Simulated scan of single mutants.
Amino acid sequence: MTAAPPSPCRILVAGVSGVGKTTLCREIERCSGIPHTEIDALFHGPGWIPRPEFSADVACLAAGGSWVTEWQYDAARPVLAERADTLLWLDFPFWTVTFPRVVRRTVRRSLSRQKLWNGNTEGSLRTLFTDPEHIIRWAVASRHSYRERISALAETAPQLRVLRLRHPREARAWVSTVWPAGTDAKDGPRR
């Protein structure tokens, strides 16, 4: 009989913009008690300017005993991957799941002028066709980038258990299998 793998305690969630990385991180935090640090909040300063403390904050996060965060930003990816034990790759169908999500989220945030990280708000929908870094355009342009990044992890982070989840129901099933209902998240992460 083989032993079940230990419960993860340093978790990365990867995927294209709008796929639901932060939502899954929050669900993991709720079910497990593992603290979630939103990587966008560490990266974006006021006026969407990258925070100078970003690299130091990422190193501090990575050094922690347990955490869950989004696997984003080139400066953060290798530091986090080196310490993580699990990477959840949300590789959902782009045009039927992810694209509608990123459009809905962007429209909602733009129209409501929702405050995001450090006082920033989503850009205007009018810039969709003029700004090459508009979040909707970014999601379309970068939708295939994770295949190469994640395949490279076998060499750069061999300790990392990579799970490719192809539909939101697979992500929900993974969480409920690792932290079954009825577990008291207040007791902290299980190790």
Results as ranks from 00 to 15, higher is better:
residue 123 G to E: 10
residue 149 R to S: 13
residue 114 Q to T: 15
residue 156 T to M: 05
residue 104 R to M: 07
residue 129 F to N: 04
residue 111 L to R: 13
residue 118 N to E: 10
residue 105 R to K: 06
residue 141 A to H: 08
residue 145 S to G: 14
residue 168 P to L: 02
residue 137 R to I: 00
residue 127 T to I: 11
residue 96 T to F: 08
residue 105 R to D: 01
residue 145 S to D: 14
residue 132 P to C: 01
residue 128 L to N: 00
residue 148 E to D: 14
residue 147 R to T: 13
residue 111 L to W: 00
residue 130 T to S: 14
residue 102 V to Y: 10
residue 98 T to E: 09
residue 106 T to R: 00
residue 154 A to P: 00
residue 147 R to Q: 11
residue 94 F to C: 06
residue 144 H to T: 15
residue 163 L to H: 12
residue 147 R to A: 15
residue 126 R to N: 07
residue 142 S to E: 06
residue 113 R to T: 01
residue 101 R to L: 10
residue 144 H to D: 15
residue 145 S to Y: 12
residue 140 V to C: 09
residue 114 Q to C: 06
residue 150 I to C: 12
residue 147 R to G: 11
residue 143 R to A: 02
residue 114 Q to R: 12
residue 147 R to K: 11
residue 119 G to R: 08
residue 149 R to C: 06
residue 132 P to K: 08
residue 95 W to N: 04
residue 120 N to Y: 02
residue 129 F to R: 08
residue 137 R to A: 12
residue 93 P to D: 13
residue 92 F to S: 01
residue 157 A to N: 09
residue 167 H to N: 05
residue 130 T to A: 08
residue 120 N to L: 04
residue 151 S to N: 13
residue 104 R to A: 15
residue 170 E to Q: 14
residue 130 T to E: 00
residue 120 N to W: 09
residue 156 T to H: 11
residue 155 E to N: 05
residue 170 E to W: 08
residue 114 Q to M: 06
residue 130 T to C: 05
residue 116 L to T: 03
residue 133 E to M: 10
residue 95 W to F: 13
residue 144 H to A: 13
residue 160 L to A: 08
residue 159 Q to A: 14
residue 139 A to W: 07
residue 166 R to N: 14
residue 164 R to Q: 09
residue 142 S to N: 13
residue 103 V to P: 03
residue 114 Q to E: 15
